[in-house]
């Protein structure tokens, strides 16, 4: 079913992007002290609570043809109403979550442990990797929380994706559409698939979490 495949592709890619960007940001903020850090942290916490639909609106205005990015012709800038635009919106939603939860997890690691790690000859990068590994349960929670947020998200993908049949229609927007059409059976069936995916993903993550934390 193409709607399911697209949902997985969009949210999966957005999760991957936000993990790759968010974890280093979170680790950096958790480990390094620098001027303006409290300000960046306040900004991050604000971004974590940002309503996804507002992110969608901002991305929409950004990518719109008369918006700041819409006028630039580049393979790196996604067009409005494409899966790539949806991935961008979901990544913007997920990065602060991944970074914030990662930062909290890293801050939870005993700072004296970092001193011990350094004393054993770790480079700054190795120090970061080891600290992340010690905070791995928290990092997994960060990823799960982000996935939960973006996979269930409907407002932003509706706005920037346009809910185009066979192209940008994902599970959540399909549920909205079918509900609006009065096709409650189909809407519920899609909803069950959505819940099923969430269950499988979360169970996998939980098993993983138990494995790494034992």
């Amino acid at each position: 079913m193409e709607v399911v495949a697209l949902s997985l592709r969009v949210s999966g890619t957005a999760l991957l992007v936000s993990t790759v960007i968010g974890i280093p940001i979170g680790a950096f903020l958790g480990l390094r002290r620098f001027v303006g850090r409290p300000f960046v942290m306040a900004l991050l916490y604000t971004a974590m609570g940002f309503p996804p639909v507002v992110v969608g609106l901002l991305v929409y205005l950004l990518l719109s043809r008369n918006g700041p990015l819409g006028q630039i012709e580049s393979a790196w800038i996604p067009r409005l109403f494409t899966p790539e635009a949806m991935i961008l919106a979901q990544s913007v939603i997920a990065v602060p979550l991944v970074a914030g939860f990662t930062m909290a997890a890293v801050l939870g690691v005993d700072p004296q442990l970092q001193q011990q790690i350094k004393s054993l000859g770790a480079t700054p990068w190795q120090e970061m990797a080891t600290t992340l590994s010690e905070a791995r349960v928290g990092v997994i929670i960060a990823i799960v929380a982000a996935l939960g947020r973006i996979a269930a998200e409907v407002g932003a993908v509706m706005l920037v994706g346009g809910n185009i049949d066979g192209r940008t229609r994902v599970l959540t927007t399909a549920v909205v559409l079918e509900t609006r059409k009065g096709n409650f059976e189909l809407a519920i069936a899609l909803g069950i698939i959505l819940i099923g995916i969430a269950f499988v993903v979360n169970t996998t993550m939980l098993i993983l979490q138990r494995q790494v934390s034992k």
Binding site: E2, L6, R9, V10, G12, T13, L16, T19, G166
Partner: peptide, 16 residues
């Protein structure tokens, strides 16, 4: 994560 992304990727042609 790659599987999630990739599974959609391989299935993409059906979306067109």
């Amino acid at each position: 994560a790659l599987m999630v992304a990739g599974c959609g990727g391989t299935a993409e042609p059906t979306a067109v």
